[in-house]
Design a protein around this nucleic acid. Structure first.
Lengths: 192, 192
DNA sequence: ATCGTCATGTAAGGCGTTACATGATTTT
DNA sequence: AAAATCATGTAACGCCTTACATGACGAT
Protein backbone atom coordinates (compact mmCIF):
# COMPACT_ATOMS: atom_id res chain seq x y z
CA UNK A 1 0.00 0.00 0.00
CA UNK A 2 1.37 3.39 -0.98
CA UNK A 3 -0.14 6.47 0.62
CA UNK A 4 2.69 8.89 -0.14
CA UNK A 5 1.67 11.89 -2.16
CA UNK A 6 3.62 12.58 -5.29
CA UNK A 7 4.35 16.16 -4.43
CA UNK A 8 3.02 18.90 -2.24
CA UNK A 9 2.53 22.51 -3.19
CA UNK A 10 3.97 25.29 -1.10
CA UNK A 11 0.57 26.01 0.48
CA UNK A 12 1.44 29.66 0.96
CA UNK A 13 -2.18 30.62 1.58
CA UNK A 14 -2.28 28.14 4.45
CA UNK A 15 0.60 29.91 6.20
CA UNK A 16 -0.67 33.39 5.32
CA UNK A 17 -3.89 32.51 7.13
CA UNK A 18 -2.03 30.98 10.07
CA UNK A 19 0.07 34.15 10.21
CA UNK A 20 -2.99 36.38 10.31
CA UNK A 21 -4.62 34.24 12.99
CA UNK A 22 -1.41 34.41 15.04
CA UNK A 23 -2.16 38.10 15.58
CA UNK A 24 -5.72 37.62 16.73
CA UNK A 25 -8.74 35.33 16.23
CA UNK A 26 -10.61 36.19 13.02
CA UNK A 27 -13.50 35.14 10.81
CA UNK A 28 -13.15 34.13 7.17
CA UNK A 29 -14.63 37.47 6.27
CA UNK A 30 -12.03 39.34 8.32
CA UNK A 31 -9.26 37.37 6.62
CA UNK A 32 -10.74 38.24 3.22
CA UNK A 33 -10.59 41.92 4.18
CA UNK A 34 -6.99 41.63 5.37
CA UNK A 35 -5.97 40.49 1.90
CA UNK A 36 -7.18 43.84 0.61
CA UNK A 37 -5.08 45.70 3.17
CA UNK A 38 -1.33 45.80 3.87
CA UNK A 39 -0.73 42.10 3.35
CA UNK A 40 -2.46 42.35 -0.02
CA UNK A 41 0.62 44.09 -1.42
CA UNK A 42 2.38 40.72 -1.20
CA UNK A 43 -0.27 38.06 -1.18
CA UNK A 44 -3.92 37.94 -2.21
CA UNK A 45 -6.82 35.53 -1.94
CA UNK A 46 -10.54 35.69 -2.56
CA UNK A 47 -13.13 34.44 -0.09
CA UNK A 48 -13.83 31.49 -2.40
CA UNK A 49 -10.33 30.26 -1.69
CA UNK A 50 -10.26 31.24 1.96
CA UNK A 51 -13.36 29.41 3.22
CA UNK A 52 -12.30 26.00 1.83
CA UNK A 53 -8.76 26.56 3.15
CA UNK A 54 -10.11 27.26 6.64
CA UNK A 55 -11.97 23.94 6.51
CA UNK A 56 -8.74 22.18 5.55
CA UNK A 57 -6.88 23.84 8.41
CA UNK A 58 -9.59 22.71 10.82
CA UNK A 59 -9.18 19.13 9.64
CA UNK A 60 -5.40 19.43 9.99
CA UNK A 61 -6.00 20.60 13.59
CA UNK A 62 -4.03 23.78 13.00
CA UNK A 63 -6.94 26.05 13.90
CA UNK A 64 -10.08 25.80 16.01
CA UNK A 65 -13.52 27.24 15.37
CA UNK A 66 -15.83 29.15 17.64
CA UNK A 67 -19.29 30.08 16.41
CA UNK A 68 -20.74 33.38 17.57
CA UNK A 69 -24.33 34.35 16.91
CA UNK A 70 -25.11 37.99 16.33
CA UNK A 71 -28.86 37.77 16.14
CA UNK A 72 -29.55 35.36 13.29
CA UNK A 73 -26.17 35.95 11.67
CA UNK A 74 -23.50 33.40 12.41
CA UNK A 75 -19.86 34.34 12.66
CA UNK A 76 -17.27 31.61 12.66
CA UNK A 77 -14.27 32.83 14.56
CA UNK A 78 -11.03 30.93 14.07
CA UNK A 79 -7.91 30.80 16.21
CA UNK A 80 -4.58 29.01 16.13
CA UNK A 81 -4.12 25.75 17.97
CA UNK A 82 -0.78 24.90 19.56
CA UNK A 83 -0.06 22.72 16.51
CA UNK A 84 -0.90 25.63 14.22
CA UNK A 85 1.46 27.89 16.13
CA UNK A 86 4.23 25.36 15.64
CA UNK A 87 3.47 24.91 11.94
CA UNK A 88 3.61 28.67 11.41
CA UNK A 89 6.87 29.07 13.27
CA UNK A 90 8.46 26.26 11.31
CA UNK A 91 7.32 27.89 8.02
CA UNK A 92 8.62 31.29 9.09
CA UNK A 93 12.08 29.78 9.46
CA UNK A 94 12.19 28.42 5.90
CA UNK A 95 14.50 30.05 3.38
CA UNK A 96 13.00 31.26 0.13
CA UNK A 97 14.07 30.04 -3.26
CA UNK A 98 14.41 32.52 -6.08
CA UNK A 99 10.92 33.61 -7.00
CA UNK A 100 9.64 34.01 -10.51
CA UNK A 101 8.28 37.37 -11.50
CA UNK A 102 5.41 37.82 -13.92
CA UNK A 103 4.88 41.18 -15.58
CA UNK A 104 2.58 41.42 -18.57
CA UNK A 105 3.64 44.97 -19.46
CA UNK A 106 7.29 43.92 -19.75
CA UNK A 107 6.19 40.94 -21.81
CA UNK A 108 4.27 43.15 -24.23
CA UNK A 109 7.22 45.51 -24.43
CA UNK A 110 9.51 42.61 -25.27
CA UNK A 111 7.45 42.12 -28.42
CA UNK A 112 7.44 45.78 -29.43
CA UNK A 113 8.75 44.80 -32.88
CA UNK A 114 5.25 43.49 -33.66
CA UNK A 115 3.44 46.43 -32.07
CA UNK A 116 1.85 49.27 -34.04
CA UNK A 117 4.28 52.09 -33.24
CA UNK A 118 1.52 54.57 -32.42
CA UNK A 119 0.39 52.25 -29.62
CA UNK A 120 3.57 52.58 -27.58
CA UNK A 121 2.59 56.01 -26.33
CA UNK A 122 -0.81 54.79 -25.15
CA UNK A 123 0.72 51.82 -23.35
CA UNK A 124 3.39 53.86 -21.57
CA UNK A 125 0.99 56.66 -20.62
CA UNK A 126 -1.46 54.17 -19.15
CA UNK A 127 1.24 52.36 -17.22
CA UNK A 128 2.70 55.61 -15.90
CA UNK A 129 -0.73 56.72 -14.68
CA UNK A 130 -1.35 53.40 -12.97
CA UNK A 131 1.98 53.42 -11.16
CA UNK A 132 1.52 57.05 -10.14
CA UNK A 133 -1.88 56.26 -8.66
CA UNK A 134 -0.47 53.28 -6.81
CA UNK A 135 2.39 55.33 -5.41
CA UNK A 136 -0.03 58.00 -4.24
CA UNK A 137 -2.14 55.36 -2.52
CA UNK A 138 0.87 53.82 -0.79
CA UNK A 139 2.16 57.18 0.41
CA UNK A 140 -1.27 57.93 1.77
CA UNK A 141 -1.24 54.60 3.59
CA UNK A 142 2.10 55.53 5.12
CA UNK A 143 0.75 58.91 6.23
CA UNK A 144 -2.38 57.31 7.68
CA UNK A 145 -0.65 54.66 9.73
CA UNK A 146 2.50 56.48 10.78
CA UNK A 147 2.79 59.95 12.27
CA UNK A 148 4.91 62.69 10.73
CA UNK A 149 8.15 62.12 12.59
CA UNK A 150 7.76 58.62 13.91
CA UNK A 151 10.73 56.64 15.15
CA UNK A 152 11.14 53.22 13.56
CA UNK A 153 13.03 51.70 16.45
CA UNK A 154 10.27 52.37 18.97
CA UNK A 155 7.52 50.62 16.98
CA UNK A 156 6.07 47.35 18.23
CA UNK A 157 6.52 44.22 16.12
CA UNK A 158 3.25 44.56 14.21
CA UNK A 159 3.72 48.22 13.32
CA UNK A 160 7.38 47.64 12.47
CA UNK A 161 6.46 44.78 10.10
CA UNK A 162 3.73 46.92 8.59
CA UNK A 163 6.22 49.70 8.00
CA UNK A 164 8.74 47.35 6.40
CA UNK A 165 6.31 45.89 3.89
CA UNK A 166 4.82 49.30 3.12
CA UNK A 167 8.25 50.73 2.47
CA UNK A 168 9.01 47.72 0.28
CA UNK A 169 5.86 48.29 -1.78
CA UNK A 170 6.78 51.94 -2.22
CA UNK A 171 10.36 51.09 -3.23
CA UNK A 172 9.07 48.55 -5.73
CA UNK A 173 6.55 50.93 -7.33
CA UNK A 174 8.96 53.86 -7.36
CA UNK A 175 11.62 51.76 -9.06
CA UNK A 176 9.06 50.63 -11.64
CA UNK A 177 7.92 54.21 -12.20
CA UNK A 178 11.48 55.51 -12.63
CA UNK A 179 12.27 52.75 -15.12
CA UNK A 180 9.10 53.62 -17.06
CA UNK A 181 10.15 57.28 -17.29
CA UNK A 182 13.70 56.43 -18.39
CA UNK A 183 12.45 53.89 -20.93
CA UNK A 184 9.82 56.21 -22.36
CA UNK A 185 12.48 58.88 -22.85
CA UNK A 186 14.65 56.35 -24.69
CA UNK A 187 11.72 55.32 -26.89
CA UNK A 188 11.12 58.96 -27.79
CA UNK A 189 14.77 59.67 -28.53
CA UNK A 190 14.91 56.55 -30.65
CA UNK A 191 11.83 57.41 -32.67
CA UNK A 192 12.92 61.00 -33.25
CA UNK B 1 -28.52 25.70 -26.55
CA UNK B 2 -25.96 27.74 -24.74
CA UNK B 3 -22.36 27.47 -25.89
CA UNK B 4 -21.04 30.65 -24.30
CA UNK B 5 -18.26 30.11 -21.81
CA UNK B 6 -18.72 31.61 -18.39
CA UNK B 7 -15.38 33.36 -18.38
CA UNK B 8 -12.09 33.20 -20.13
CA UNK B 9 -8.68 33.49 -18.58
CA UNK B 10 -6.15 35.97 -19.80
CA UNK B 11 -4.26 33.26 -21.73
CA UNK B 12 -0.98 35.09 -21.30
CA UNK B 13 1.05 32.04 -22.26
CA UNK B 14 -0.82 31.91 -25.56
CA UNK B 15 0.32 35.42 -26.44
CA UNK B 16 3.83 34.92 -25.10
CA UNK B 17 4.20 32.01 -27.52
CA UNK B 18 2.67 34.00 -30.39
CA UNK B 19 5.10 36.81 -29.58
CA UNK B 20 8.10 34.49 -29.66
CA UNK B 21 6.95 32.96 -32.94
CA UNK B 22 6.51 36.46 -34.40
CA UNK B 23 10.31 36.78 -34.30
CA UNK B 24 11.02 33.50 -36.03
CA UNK B 25 9.63 29.98 -36.47
CA UNK B 26 10.47 27.77 -33.50
CA UNK B 27 9.95 24.33 -32.01
CA UNK B 28 8.32 23.66 -28.65
CA UNK B 29 11.77 22.90 -27.31
CA UNK B 30 13.13 26.24 -28.53
CA UNK B 31 10.22 28.03 -26.86
CA UNK B 32 10.93 26.16 -23.62
CA UNK B 33 14.53 27.41 -23.79
CA UNK B 34 13.43 30.99 -24.44
CA UNK B 35 11.53 30.97 -21.15
CA UNK B 36 14.85 30.40 -19.42
CA UNK B 37 16.41 33.37 -21.19
CA UNK B 38 15.55 37.09 -21.28
CA UNK B 39 11.80 36.63 -21.43
CA UNK B 40 12.00 34.38 -18.39
CA UNK B 41 12.56 37.44 -16.21
CA UNK B 42 8.89 38.32 -16.83
CA UNK B 43 7.14 35.14 -17.82
CA UNK B 44 7.88 31.46 -17.40
CA UNK B 45 6.46 28.17 -18.56
CA UNK B 46 7.54 24.54 -18.51
CA UNK B 47 7.49 22.28 -21.54
CA UNK B 48 4.55 20.41 -20.03
CA UNK B 49 2.52 23.57 -20.43
CA UNK B 50 3.97 24.62 -23.76
CA UNK B 51 3.30 21.48 -25.82
CA UNK B 52 -0.42 21.36 -25.00
CA UNK B 53 -0.70 25.11 -25.61
CA UNK B 54 0.89 24.71 -29.06
CA UNK B 55 -1.76 22.10 -29.89
CA UNK B 56 -4.47 24.53 -28.83
CA UNK B 57 -2.99 27.30 -30.97
CA UNK B 58 -2.92 24.93 -33.94
CA UNK B 59 -6.63 24.17 -33.48
CA UNK B 60 -7.32 27.90 -33.18
CA UNK B 61 -5.51 28.37 -36.50
CA UNK B 62 -3.13 30.91 -34.99
CA UNK B 63 -0.02 28.90 -35.82
CA UNK B 64 0.93 26.31 -38.41
CA UNK B 65 3.16 23.27 -38.03
CA UNK B 66 5.97 22.03 -40.21
CA UNK B 67 7.63 18.72 -39.38
CA UNK B 68 11.33 18.41 -40.08
CA UNK B 69 13.13 15.10 -39.81
CA UNK B 70 16.70 15.06 -38.64
CA UNK B 71 17.44 11.39 -39.11
CA UNK B 72 14.86 9.63 -36.94
CA UNK B 73 14.33 12.64 -34.70
CA UNK B 74 11.30 14.73 -35.53
CA UNK B 75 11.26 18.46 -34.99
CA UNK B 76 7.92 20.26 -35.13
CA UNK B 77 8.55 23.78 -36.25
CA UNK B 78 5.76 26.28 -35.66
CA UNK B 79 5.10 29.64 -37.28
CA UNK B 80 2.45 32.34 -37.03
CA UNK B 81 -0.49 32.32 -39.40
CA UNK B 82 -2.00 35.59 -40.61
CA UNK B 83 -4.74 35.10 -38.00
CA UNK B 84 -2.09 34.56 -35.35
CA UNK B 85 -0.33 37.75 -36.34
CA UNK B 86 -3.58 39.66 -35.94
CA UNK B 87 -4.36 38.06 -32.58
CA UNK B 88 -0.91 39.02 -31.28
CA UNK B 89 -1.17 42.60 -32.51
CA UNK B 90 -4.58 43.00 -30.93
CA UNK B 91 -3.25 41.66 -27.61
CA UNK B 92 -0.22 43.95 -27.74
CA UNK B 93 -2.57 46.94 -27.87
CA UNK B 94 -4.43 45.98 -24.70
CA UNK B 95 -3.93 48.05 -21.56
CA UNK B 96 -2.88 46.28 -18.38
CA UNK B 97 -4.85 46.33 -15.19
CA UNK B 98 -3.03 46.66 -11.88
CA UNK B 99 -1.16 43.45 -11.34
CA UNK B 100 -0.93 41.62 -8.08
CA UNK B 101 2.49 40.98 -6.64
CA UNK B 102 3.36 37.89 -4.66
CA UNK B 103 6.42 37.88 -2.44
CA UNK B 104 6.84 35.17 0.15
CA UNK B 105 9.76 36.86 1.90
CA UNK B 106 7.69 40.00 2.51
CA UNK B 107 4.87 37.79 3.73
CA UNK B 108 7.13 36.03 6.20
CA UNK B 109 8.50 39.37 7.36
CA UNK B 110 4.97 40.65 7.93
CA UNK B 111 4.61 37.93 10.56
CA UNK B 112 7.91 38.63 12.28
CA UNK B 113 6.10 38.92 15.62
CA UNK B 114 5.72 35.12 15.56
CA UNK B 115 9.27 34.46 14.37
CA UNK B 116 12.12 33.27 16.58
CA UNK B 117 14.20 36.44 16.77
CA UNK B 118 17.46 34.63 16.04
CA UNK B 119 16.03 33.53 12.69
CA UNK B 120 15.75 37.07 11.27
CA UNK B 121 19.46 37.24 10.61
CA UNK B 122 19.45 33.95 8.70
CA UNK B 123 16.49 35.03 6.58
CA UNK B 124 17.95 38.44 5.70
CA UNK B 125 21.41 37.06 4.97
CA UNK B 126 19.98 34.41 2.68
CA UNK B 127 17.78 36.91 0.86
CA UNK B 128 20.66 39.37 0.45
CA UNK B 129 22.85 36.64 -1.01
CA UNK B 130 20.16 35.57 -3.45
CA UNK B 131 19.52 39.09 -4.67
CA UNK B 132 23.23 39.77 -4.99
CA UNK B 133 23.67 36.66 -7.13
CA UNK B 134 20.71 37.62 -9.30
CA UNK B 135 22.08 41.12 -9.79
CA UNK B 136 25.49 39.74 -10.75
CA UNK B 137 23.84 37.43 -13.29
CA UNK B 138 21.80 40.25 -14.81
CA UNK B 139 24.80 42.57 -15.08
CA UNK B 140 26.68 39.77 -16.77
CA UNK B 141 23.80 39.34 -19.21
CA UNK B 142 23.96 43.05 -19.98
CA UNK B 143 27.71 42.84 -20.57
CA UNK B 144 27.33 39.78 -22.79
CA UNK B 145 24.63 41.18 -25.04
CA UNK B 146 25.63 44.82 -25.20
CA UNK B 147 29.06 46.26 -25.87
CA UNK B 148 30.82 48.64 -23.48
CA UNK B 149 29.67 51.97 -24.93
CA UNK B 150 26.65 50.98 -26.99
CA UNK B 151 24.13 53.56 -28.12
CA UNK B 152 20.53 52.75 -27.20
CA UNK B 153 18.99 54.76 -30.02
CA UNK B 154 20.78 52.82 -32.74
CA UNK B 155 19.62 49.38 -31.58
CA UNK B 156 17.12 47.44 -33.68
CA UNK B 157 13.70 46.64 -32.22
CA UNK B 158 14.66 43.25 -30.81
CA UNK B 159 17.85 44.43 -29.13
CA UNK B 160 16.15 47.56 -27.85
CA UNK B 161 13.33 45.50 -26.31
CA UNK B 162 15.88 43.14 -24.83
CA UNK B 163 17.74 46.08 -23.30
CA UNK B 164 14.54 47.55 -21.85
CA UNK B 165 13.47 44.37 -20.09
CA UNK B 166 16.99 43.64 -18.88
CA UNK B 167 17.28 47.14 -17.43
CA UNK B 168 13.89 46.64 -15.81
CA UNK B 169 14.99 43.39 -14.20
CA UNK B 170 18.12 45.10 -12.89
CA UNK B 171 16.15 48.06 -11.53
CA UNK B 172 13.74 45.68 -9.82
CA UNK B 173 16.44 43.58 -8.19
CA UNK B 174 18.54 46.59 -7.19
CA UNK B 175 15.53 48.23 -5.57
CA UNK B 176 14.78 45.00 -3.70
CA UNK B 177 18.41 44.70 -2.58
CA UNK B 178 18.57 48.32 -1.38
CA UNK B 179 15.36 47.86 0.60
CA UNK B 180 16.77 44.69 2.16
CA UNK B 181 19.91 46.57 3.29
CA UNK B 182 17.92 49.48 4.73
CA UNK B 183 15.50 47.13 6.47
CA UNK B 184 18.21 44.93 7.92
CA UNK B 185 19.90 48.01 9.36
CA UNK B 186 16.61 49.06 10.94
CA UNK B 187 16.13 45.60 12.41
CA UNK B 188 19.60 45.75 13.93
CA UNK B 189 19.12 49.25 15.36
CA UNK B 190 15.79 48.15 16.79
CA UNK B 191 17.18 45.05 18.46
CA UNK B 192 20.21 46.89 19.88
C1' DA C 1 29.13 2.78 -23.29
C1' DT C 2 27.64 6.55 -20.61
C1' DC C 3 26.19 11.22 -20.04
C1' DG C 4 24.27 15.42 -21.45
C1' DT C 5 21.35 17.60 -24.46
C1' DC C 6 17.70 17.59 -27.93
C1' DA C 7 12.99 16.56 -28.51
C1' DT C 8 8.10 15.47 -27.45
C1' DG C 9 4.51 14.19 -25.04
C1' DT C 10 0.74 12.84 -20.86
C1' DA C 11 -1.20 12.50 -15.96
C1' DA C 12 -2.27 14.03 -11.44
C1' DG C 13 -3.09 17.41 -8.43
C1' DG C 14 -2.76 21.86 -6.28
C1' DC C 15 -3.62 26.89 -6.94
C1' DG C 16 -6.50 30.76 -8.20
C1' DT C 17 -10.40 33.34 -10.48
C1' DT C 18 -15.03 34.01 -11.86
C1' DA C 19 -19.49 32.98 -11.27
C1' DC C 20 -23.34 31.07 -8.82
C1' DA C 21 -26.03 31.23 -4.43
C1' DT C 22 -28.06 32.80 -0.16
C1' DG C 23 -29.40 35.61 3.58
C1' DA C 24 -28.83 39.08 7.61
C1' DT C 25 -27.53 43.67 9.22
C1' DT C 26 -26.58 48.47 8.75
C1' DT C 27 -26.66 52.77 6.52
C1' DT C 28 -28.81 56.22 3.68
C1' DA D 1 -37.45 51.05 0.90
C1' DA D 2 -33.18 50.52 -1.27
C1' DA D 3 -28.33 49.96 -1.29
C1' DA D 4 -24.11 48.78 0.85
C1' DT D 5 -21.81 45.83 3.73
C1' DC D 6 -21.40 41.69 6.60
C1' DA D 7 -21.17 36.84 6.29
C1' DT D 8 -20.67 32.14 4.31
C1' DG D 9 -20.50 28.88 1.17
C1' DT D 10 -20.09 25.83 -3.69
C1' DA D 11 -19.17 24.93 -8.82
C1' DA D 12 -16.69 25.30 -12.97
C1' DC D 13 -12.79 26.17 -15.20
C1' DG D 14 -8.28 27.65 -16.45
C1' DC D 15 -3.42 27.92 -14.95
C1' DC D 16 0.84 25.91 -13.38
C1' DT D 17 4.03 22.47 -11.31
C1' DT D 18 5.74 17.96 -10.49
C1' DA D 19 6.16 13.64 -11.99
C1' DC D 20 5.86 10.02 -15.33
C1' DA D 21 7.42 8.40 -19.96
C1' DT D 22 10.01 7.76 -24.16
C1' DG D 23 13.60 7.97 -27.43
C1' DA D 24 17.35 10.02 -30.67
C1' DC D 25 21.73 12.42 -31.23
C1' DG D 26 26.41 13.94 -30.01
C1' DA D 27 30.41 14.15 -27.22
C1' DT D 28 33.87 11.93 -24.16
Amino acid sequence: MNTTKKFTGKRTLKYAILGLLSRQPMTGYDITCEFQQAIGQFWQAKHSQIYPELKKLLIENLISQQIEMKGELEKKCYQLTELGKQALEQWLCQLDEIESEKDVFALRLYFLHAMPKTQLSTLFTHQLEQKQARLAFLHQQLATHFSENFDVITLNDNDFAHYLVLSKAIAREQSYYDWLVRSWQKVLRRQA
